[in-house]
Design a binder for these strands. Structure first.
Lengths: 339, 339
DNA sequence: TTGTATGCGTTATCAA
DNA sequence: TTGATAACGCATACAA
């Protein structure tokens, strides 16, 4: 039994050919006669040869893998982005490896550094808004694209979903369903939430007679939503909104739970509710939730495209830019009725 | 501006020392005089040198990264495993890279192959039960551990949660809460579910007077649970279970939703419900769900430990084995009352 | 179509 | 403590 795995030169010797020939049949770029090809392939099989990607990328000076540093894998949105990125990468013959930075900027740096050291072909980073400052400085020479947050435009490309449009779509939908008193719930501490609210405001402004109220929440989790719901339940009917735009699905689920448990208000009859994200975590609410679906796959796809573009164009000829992806309205039961 | 990133020899020239010296300050294994160290470090900073991990692992003949091929990243359990694995790997100075096989055995193979080609130090594979046959054959030379499914014991190590124990814990808890008519819901097509049922049966057998009924479901999703709940609601009170052991959290959520919507049965007063997995997707049910928490982090940790063991012992001296991790009962409101 | 030889950027061995 | 140099396994340019 051999100690280390066989190399190309072992294969060459076994097949009675040169290393170059073995390399040629492996890569298929240069023509090789069927006869020798067969001999080489037989030797490869016999020896159980597996090509060494490390030596490969060292010699070739390029790698065929992309690295994706993800801030929150528990969020299905980022998984969708990863899927989109993976597909687009596959089209270009590249593989996508993931690293979980788990909300930690330190781990984010560590993994970016790792990918840089490993000289991957390119790096994707899903980061927090505001934490993308010097990401590019960690990656000199390796193209890097910031995903889901606007990066420093002069140094990196970035891809973001159009949150303003999403808010607009949500509010417009509710108004078209006949709703007139809208309540927006969320915390405007978060930049994406702020953008969503802007879109809601634009939609409301387009429809005279429609009023909008904003309720700040501490966070955008289920418990925050429950508080919003409890508040609505306690109100005088004349003060009550007939529709809620939640800044996130979990928030919407909380609102819904609260209304349902109170048994006094029905969804959507009395209050329509729309969420945001189309998060898997909210797919199973009692009343199926209308929502704005994040363009996760598109974000991932576009990010890889930008990476490939930079890869082909070369670092200096490349102009960094921001690409925006459009979210989509998904109508389910929670807004389906007419008021 | 330089075309490619500076190498050790560039640094050596700039610092007026030899490559070996630079390598020594980089790795810190050999003593270097403070003076030259300072000169080298200055040159490194000045040139923006980043060490080349590819050449590094080629020359050293070893890599410091582990690869984890994950079957379903959308399931928070696997993310927990990844976290546990990452921590343990970190302790050994290794990095963990993830690949999403997304339920596809083909992608699983592809990524295992990729990791083998890249000569990672070791590979973790979270696989489907039954699909682990020839995984080791794809990875000659690279230690591979099967996670969450029993691998072919003679070829690989594997780590699994103790599903039988989990079932036992769940049923015992319910019996201790005074429940006497247990209903187990799930599909015994799935091996893990079958094991959980075995544990439930053992617990029931230990308590004369307690009866158990098994209701097969098509799958273990929320909708399957709703059907189970609907069935319970329609039953004659004397035929009705006072406790449900669901084979999975989502199933339990479905049961709960159905009972709650019916408004005729209360949880846990009339029917206690316990789930399985402690899946994040079920954290926000209306009545907080008691459950059996999967030992995700432990599974990941043990998997890496087995890998390290095989790495140190060497392939031939190493005996492959199966490690089992114990799940834990988590009591929340859905079983907290007394019947 | 196939063989030969050089270099990729490091580590590691052996001298100095 | 430091310097010189041979691998590591492959791609690739060039020669045959």
């Amino acid at each position: 039994m051999r100690r280390s795995s066989p190399s190309i030169s072992d294969v060459a010797r076994a097949a009675g050919v040169s290393m170059g020939t073995v390399s040629n049949v492996l890569n298929g770029t240069v023509r090789v006669s069927p006869a020798t090809r067969a001999r080489v392939e037989a030797a490869i099989r016999e020896l159980g040869f597996v090509r060494n990607g490390v030596a490969r990328s060292l010699a070739a000076g390029r790698s065929s893998t992309l690295g994706f540093v993800i801030i929150d894998l528990a969020n299905s949105y980022f998984l969708d982005i990863a899927r989109g990125a993976e597909k687009e990468a596959g089209r270009a013959g590249l593989n996508l490896l993931l690293a979980n930075s788990d909300m930690s900027e330190e781990k984010q740096r560590t993994y970016v550094d790792l990918f840089v050291e490993d000289r991957v072909a390119g790096i994707l980073v899903a980061a927090n808004h505001g934490s993308t400052h010097d990401l590019h400085r960690s990656a000199p020479g390796v193209p890097l694209v910031v995903v889901d947050a606007p990066g420093d435009h002069s140094d990196v490309c970035s891809v973001v979903p159009d949150n303003e449009l999403g808010g607009y779509l949500a509010a417009t939908h509710l108004v078209e369903q006949g709703r007139r008193r809208l309540l927006f719930a969320g915390t405007t501490e978060l930049v994406p939430v702020r953008d969503r609210l802007l879109g809601v405001e634009r939609a409301v402004a387009e429809h005279p007679g429609v009023v909008l109220e904003v309720e700040q929440t501490g966070n955008v989790q289920v418990e925050d939503g429950r508080r919003v719901g409890d508040d609505i339940v306690l109100r005088d009917p004349r003060e009550r909104p007939d529709a809620v735009v939640a800044a996130a699905d979990l928030l919407a689920v909380g609102v819904q739970q609260s209304l349902l448990l109170s048994s006094s208000l029905r969804v959507p009859d009395d209050v329509a509710i729309i969420g945001y994200d189309d998060n898997r975590a909210a797919w199973d609410s009692a009343v199926p939730l209308s929502t704005i679906r994040q363009p996760g796959e598109a974000v991932g796809r576009e990010a890889v495209r930008l990476l490939l573009e930079e890869l082909e164009t070369g670092p200096e000829a490349h102009r960094h830019r921001l690409v925006t992806c459009e979210p989509r309205l998904v109508v389910r039961a929670s807004t389906a009725g007419t008021s």
